[in-house]
Design a protein around this nucleic acid. Structure first.
Lengths: 337, 337
DNA sequence: CTGAAAGCGCTTACAG
DNA sequence: CTGAAAGCGCTTACAG
């Protein structure tokens, strides 16, 4: 294998000098630098990262931890966009990305701790698909650098999340503007904190219009399509039924659409539906689903930026909120009559 | 940071002995081993991977390369399953997974080469979402260890792929058994090799029944939903139209279903549709899509096994074929009348 | 069975 | 501006 010593020999300088050139250090004469660079180019030499890491005490690798149950991951709308955002930043810093998709949260947390201790990774980004608490406990001890994409409530970890509250506010206001007054909501039990925020957005938007959230018009699902269909049936079976349904995630919105179809209700004429997430299938519903989009790329980018801030030992923003945007497509319109 | 020297001091042995315990070497007395293990357990010591790697000349990291255009990745049915399969094997070997999702194929190839040369990774698994040729050219030179998931035609790389031919054979036979004689096919231009194989399966199954593939009944898409819809329109606009359509991927099958809906054709009574891939949305079509499923987990596992075979310097299987299975759901039935 | 020494391939003060 | 030397934290012959 080509080593720095070999390059030094070919360029007739010391390994230390080659190292200086490699690291863009000052105090190397222009001609020496040129000579070394030529040899490097000719040989295609790439320095060994692990030797470099051993000296620099860095691995130049970031861990991306996605604790998941396969079903969740498939459903996650913007995970890939998040990854792209992280990668974009990591590339600039010449960092690589290590992927870990452990199953249970505590299992993932200890795997993460191991990678940190064995210095395989310099820091980690944890996607809050499961409970973040186990990570907080394990990683706080070893004063590790990490950030969570999601809500890191009690723990003091920097976090990045979408503006769930604002997104729900927009969606609800839109329905109100269209003229809806009886707006059904499909929420979830147990409720991830993001949904808690979305629900708060609904309530506040209704309050702006002088309305209260009618308990009768809130049905609970479990985030799945099936549960959305069931919740939709419940809402639509009411004597004085809602003219619009805001499902707090897209999959449940799909379910609601199915429930409407079973009752021969036309969307959006008989029933408006809005979802949240903008999963890739949202466009495939007919009509296409009006929903709230999260900016995965921006979230990934922000998370990586935050992590590098930590690695540079400067205090990062405790939390970053990425805007969410209402995407108007075809499932919401003015109520009939 | 805790080092092997510190452990040695605490256990009152030499670092070399600690190393032997760590590596499960023979020739360590039971009591010495016990003492060292106790200290390791008490301190929670985890050896530095990069120091270990520097000595062992291994990084214990595998590269997973997914050259993609974001659209493709979203659409990829079993990528996550593939990743899980790879991870399962990697975990057993105490290897980690590095993820790289470069855009263009040649860009990805050179990034891969860099990671190999800088010994960030010991080997790579390339998912054939784009052309594998650039990888073959770049990696062949440095005699790197890598395998492709997909078809690695001219190149001598070990490959793992689904039984596209067999899957198409099954699907077509099934339609024939249901009684269909006029079977439309939605293929693609340009055609990935996997689709080539699927088409071959169709032709052979028809031949078994004494039928030929009618050119009139083959429409070309480009793998997208929209193209499938268009191809479906073309096929269904024919005077003597097909009673079944086999779309060579699920997305085009979705498009075909949409085309059928526009003509008020009922599925499967007026038209049977079969897809290929079993993407996660397949179940969401109403009726749910009958399609051919690829075993992503098995593919990932096989690819990782093959890569480790290479890393262990033994000659691997040149190619591994993973069975594909017809999943019978609701979009295919006997033809009317 | 155990340990001293050299080595993996870089980087970093430090001296010149 | 340049290079010798030590060090990063392990492992591996080798000697005892």
């Amino acid at each position: 294998m080509l080593t720095i010593d070999e390059i030094a020999r070919l360029a007739q300088v010391s390994p230390a000098t080659v190292s200086k050139v490699l690291n863009n250090r000052l105090y190397v004469s222009a001609e020496t630098r040129a000579r070394v660079e030529r040899v490097i180019a000719e040989t295609g030499f790439v320095p060994s990262q692990r030797a470099r890491g051993l000296s620099k005490r860095r691995s130049f690798i970031l861990g991306l931890l996605i604790p998941y149950t396969s079903d969740q991951l498939f459903a996650d709308p913007h995970l890939l966009e998040i990854m792209r955002g992280i990668e974009a930043v990591a590339n600039l810093r010449e960092y690589n990305l290590l992927l870990s998709t452990a199953r249970a949260a505590n299992e993932a947390a200890s795997a993460c701790a191991r990678m940190l201790r064995s210095d395989v990774i310099d820091g980690a980004i944890v996607v809050e698909t499961l409970d973040v608490q186990p990570f907080a406990e394990v990683l706080a001890q070893q004063s590790a650098s990490w950030v969570v994409i999601g809500y890191a409530r009690q723990s003091a970890v920097p976090s990045v999340h979408a503006d769930d509250y604002g997104g729900a506010l927009q969606a609800t206001r839109y329905l109100l503007e269209l003229g809806h007054r009886r707006i059904g909501v499909i929420s979830s039990v147990p409720r991830p904190f993001a949904l808690e925020e979305r629900l708060r957005g609904v309530i506040d938007a209704l309050a702006e219009a002088g309305l209260c959230l009618d308990k009768q018009l809130v049905a609970q699902g479990d985030l799945s399509i099936e549960s959305g269909a069931h919740a939709g049936q419940v809402l639509l079976a009411q004597p004085y039924r809602p003219t619009a349904i805001f499902a707090l995630n897209d999959r449940m919105a799909f379910g609601a659409a199915r429930a409407a179809a079973e009752l021969n209700l036309t969307i959006p004429d008989d029933l408006s539906i809005i979802g949240f997430d903008d999963i890739s299938l949202a466009k495939l519903l007919t009509p296409a689903l009006t929903t709230v989009q999260q900016q995965g790329f921006a979230m990934g980018k922000a998370a990586a930026d935050t992590l590098f801030t930590l690695l540079d030992s400067v205090a990062p923003e405790p939390s970053t909120v990425i805007p969410a945007e209402l995407i108007i497509r075809g499932t919401a319109g003015p109520p009939r009559g």
